[in-house]
Write a protein that binds this DNA or RNA. Structure first.
Lengths: 229, 229
DNA sequence: GCCTTTCTCGATACGCCGTATCGACACGAT
DNA sequence: ATCGTGTCGATACGGCGTATCGAGAAAGGC
């Protein structure tokens, strides 16, 4: 490796200007199309026409990239107008809007839900999201402590539901006609309550379930209001 | 024929007697002590005094091991007596017991929460857990559809809260006296609602938050009762 | 008791991963 | 024109999950 003829000529100086936004923008579609586990530094870098080590000029760690990705899609969530402006529909309508906005984004970027359960949403967009949540609940006029608990409940419900919704079920291999694993378990008689509800269980759409469960949580929050029934 | 629970365990071995329970029992303490990412087939196998490929006689995939681990700790959750027996304290008390039992286990095995958001709890213990949840809610006398929604809400809350509770915060490096990242963000004035609640936010214990949020969800479920106020 | 068949076992290897190291090179200042 | 500085990316390391396959033990037939 000392003769110049067999050393590759360095390409025209790669002046591809990179920045964090660009890296994030390259990573997100990969996650959308092939899942979060397909997002590797090698993969993202090669989508940008460079090598993996290049990215370390912009990130300390792969985790940094995941933080950036999370905040980027968090910014895609449409938040309702602040409570003091006319666009707001009251605390309950606002919380509904936030929840359904989150669900909408989770459908476009399923991996967002994974990240949601994995790291704090401390980027600017994540903080704006939190701010909007607290502002909505604040409109109820609860005590500080109750407000924190109410926000926690709503946030936990959203994160938990979306997470559970996206779990892959055990797939029945195609061609073979057979009951699903769950149906077979229900038929054993060992799980009577489960078996009794099983049919309904499959008839409920995820959207309906998300909306209805959310109403339960909001009902519980509403019951905290000073003048609650 | 895709779920490990309905595949038979292979027969006896030559050198060291192994079985799925033994493999699981070796894996769980590793996860407890060093986190889920320390659980590799190489690591578990060497804890059992053998090589990684040995495990493939008992598992098809590493995912199978995670399923086994999840079901194992799921079996550690103390469930209340069934509703028809005297030990049961009514639907609400039962749901509380299940929720707090789950929280208790999540504290001993934090990685359980990660798995909870990652895979279906379809092992025998997971199904027994679901059965108990449905049986408790069934005692309210709701319609099938409402029952499904109520169980979803409770389950989503539990999974979501525990997941969010375990998120690592941004650690302030020791020695340097400085505000946390969140406190600094609150001080920017860009997040007024967040800033207003911030102090309280840090005063609430995780236990209290879990319990209080749960009451909100249970209140919402209670409001569905035929003769609800 | 011996031979053959069957099945288990684990060594080796492949292609990924995140990232530490470091030589080569482009660029700005002198 | 030269030097110092800082960026780029090739290479390497130790890990991962798991496919392959030869060695050898167990089981069965005679």
């Amino acid at each position: 490796m000392s003769v110049i003829w067999e050393r590759p000529e360095p390409g025209p100086r790669r002046v591809v200007r990179l920045d964090r936004a660009g890296i994030t923008a390259a990573a997100v579609p990969i996650a959308d199309r092939e899942g979060l586990e397909a997002v590797s530094l090698r993969r993202v870098a090669s989508a940008l026409g460079t090598g993996p080590m290049r990215l370390y000029g912009y990130l300390d760690t792969k985790d940094d990239l995941l933080d950036l990705m999370m905040d980027a899609v968090c910014g895609e969530i449409e938040l309702p107008a602040p409570p003091e402006l006319p666009g707001s529909g009251g605390w309950r309508e606002d919380l509904r809007a936030i929840a359904h906005g989150t669900q909408f984004i989770a459908r476009r970027h399923p991996w967002y839900v994974t990240l949601l359960g994995t790291r704090q949403p401390y980027g600017p967009n994540g903080l704006a999201y939190s701010e909007r949540l607290f502002a909505s609940v604040a409109a109820l006029g609860l005590s500080a402590r109750e407000t924190v608990h109410a926000v926690n409940a709503v946030r936990a419900y959203i994160a938990g539901f979306l997470q559970l919704e996206l779990l892959p079920g055990p797939e029945a291999e195609p061609g073979v006609e057979q009951l699903t694993y769950l149906a077979r378990m229900a038929a054993t008689g060992r799980y009577p309550a489960l078996a009794r509800i099983f049919a309904e269980f499959e008839r409920v759409s995820p959207d309906e379930a998300f909306a209805e469960g959310l109403e339960r949580v909001l009902d519980g929050v509403a019951a905290l209001r000073p003048g609650a029934p």
